[in-house]
Simulated assay, not measured.
Amino acid sequence: MSVDYRAIGKRIKQRRKDLEKTQDYLAESLSVSVGYISQIERGITKVSLDTLSEIATHLNCDISELITGAVPSHQDYLNEEFAQIYDRMDTHQKNILLEIAHVILHY
């Protein structure tokens, strides 16, 4: 499976525009040139995962949204992951988790 840098760039551009942010804003936030941001948005340059993660942070989104275009449902994702972890626990671990949950709720 190849990485579609053009699609990633389009998603970055769209997210940036949705937030009414400029390429200048993003470039300054990342300490890179506006030209570099333009190249990323046009899919001309291959953006690294580290840079993509920083872009996602500055655009207030999940990196997976930029890579796949799918907006994760955070609550559903967390519930699913929690359920998978819970299913692997033995009874003793589940009791400890329950005690921790009570402490957190009353914090």
Rank of each mutant, 00 (worst) to 15 (best):
K21S: 06
L30R: 04
L98V: 09
T57Q: 11
H92M: 10
S48K: 07
L59T: 02
E41I: 09
Y107M: 15
L26G: 03
M1C: 06
L59Y: 00
N60Y: 12
D50M: 05
I63D: 03
N79V: 03
Y77H: 09
I85P: 02
R11V: 05
A7P: 02
G69T: 03
E54D: 14
A83P: 02
R11P: 05
M1F: 07
N60M: 11
T57N: 12
Y36I: 00
A101M: 14
N79T: 08
L52H: 03
L97I: 04
L52E: 01
S64A: 04
K94A: 11
N79Y: 08
S48W: 05
R6M: 10
A56V: 07
I67N: 00
V34F: 09
L26C: 05
S64Q: 00
T45K: 07
V32H: 03
L52G: 08
G43H: 06
V3E: 07
I104L: 13
E65N: 14
K10R: 13
G9H: 00
H102C: 10
S48Q: 08
R11N: 04
S33M: 04
G69E: 02
N79Q: 13
K17Q: 15
T91F: 13
Q39Y: 02
L19T: 04
Y107F: 13
T22C: 09
Y107T: 15
S53H: 12
S33H: 01
Y5L: 00
D50Y: 09
Q39V: 04
R42P: 05
T91L: 14
Q23V: 11
S2L: 13
S48F: 00
V47C: 09
P72T: 12
S38A: 10
E20R: 04
